[in-house]
Computed example of a mutant assay.
Amino acid sequence: MPSSPSPSSSVQAARRALADRLRELRLAAELSGTDLAVAAGWHKSKVSRIEKAVQPVTQADIRTWCEACRTEDQIDDLVASLRAAEGGYVEWRRLEPTGLRKLQQSYVPLYERTRWMRVYQPHVIPGLFQTDEYARALLEAITSFRNIPNDVEAAVKARLARRRVLTTGGHTFVFLIEQCVLDYQIGGPSVLAGQLRHLLSDMSLPSVSVGVIPSDAARPMWPVEGFTVYDTTQVHVELLTANVTVTAPSELVTYFRAFDDLSALAVYGPGARELINDSLRRLEAD
Results as ranks from 00 to 15, higher is better:
residue 1 M to R: 12
residue 3 S to N: 09
residue 4 S to P: 01
residue 4 S to M: 04
residue 8 S to T: 15
residue 9 S to R: 10
residue 19 A to T: 06
residue 23 R to Y: 02
residue 27 L to T: 06
residue 33 G to I: 11
residue 33 G to R: 01
residue 34 T to F: 08
residue 40 A to P: 07
residue 41 G to C: 15
residue 42 W to E: 07
residue 44 K to W: 03
residue 50 I to F: 01
residue 50 I to P: 02
residue 53 A to E: 01
residue 55 Q to K: 08
residue 61 D to C: 07
residue 62 I to K: 01
residue 62 I to T: 08
residue 64 T to L: 02
residue 67 E to D: 10
residue 68 A to G: 07
residue 69 C to R: 03
residue 70 R to K: 09
residue 74 Q to K: 13
residue 75 I to E: 06
residue 76 D to W: 01
residue 78 L to N: 00
residue 80 A to H: 13
residue 84 A to V: 05
residue 84 A to T: 03
residue 89 Y to W: 08
residue 89 Y to C: 04
residue 89 Y to N: 07
residue 90 V to H: 06
residue 91 E to M: 14
residue 93 R to G: 05
residue 94 R to I: 02
residue 96 E to W: 04
residue 98 T to A: 15
residue 101 R to I: 04
residue 101 R to W: 08
residue 103 L to H: 14
residue 104 Q to R: 14
residue 109 P to S: 02
residue 113 R to I: 00
residue 119 V to S: 07
residue 121 Q to S: 14
residue 122 P to R: 13
residue 124 V to A: 06
residue 127 G to H: 01
residue 127 G to V: 02
residue 131 T to N: 10
residue 131 T to Y: 09
residue 132 D to Y: 14
residue 132 D to W: 09
residue 133 E to Y: 05
residue 134 Y to A: 10
residue 135 A to L: 07
residue 137 A to Q: 03
residue 138 L to W: 00
residue 138 L to M: 04
residue 140 E to I: 02
residue 142 I to M: 09
residue 143 T to L: 14
residue 149 P to M: 08
residue 152 V to Q: 13
residue 152 V to K: 13
residue 154 A to E: 12
residue 155 A to L: 12
residue 156 V to G: 09
residue 158 A to H: 15
residue 159 R to Q: 10
residue 160 L to S: 05
residue 163 R to D: 05
residue 164 R to S: 12
residue 171 H to E: 03
residue 174 V to T: 11
residue 175 F to M: 12
residue 176 L to G: 12
residue 176 L to F: 14
residue 177 I to W: 05
residue 177 I to M: 08
residue 178 E to Y: 04
residue 179 Q to M: 08
residue 181 V to D: 05
residue 183 D to A: 13
residue 184 Y to K: 09
residue 184 Y to E: 07
residue 189 P to S: 12
residue 193 A to I: 04
residue 194 G to H: 09
residue 196 L to N: 10
residue 198 H to P: 00
residue 199 L to R: 10
residue 200 L to T: 04
residue 201 S to D: 13
residue 204 S to R: 04
residue 208 V to H: 03
residue 208 V to S: 04
residue 213 I to L: 06
residue 216 D to S: 11
residue 220 P to M: 02
residue 223 P to A: 06
residue 231 D to R: 09
residue 231 D to V: 09
residue 232 T to P: 01
residue 232 T to E: 14
residue 232 T to N: 13
residue 232 T to L: 11
residue 233 T to E: 05
residue 234 Q to S: 11
residue 236 H to N: 09
residue 239 L to Q: 13
residue 246 V to M: 06
residue 250 S to R: 03
residue 251 E to M: 11
residue 255 Y to G: 02
residue 257 R to S: 08
residue 264 A to T: 13
residue 269 G to H: 11
residue 271 G to E: 03
residue 272 A to W: 04
residue 278 D to L: 00
residue 280 L to M: 07
residue 282 R to I: 15
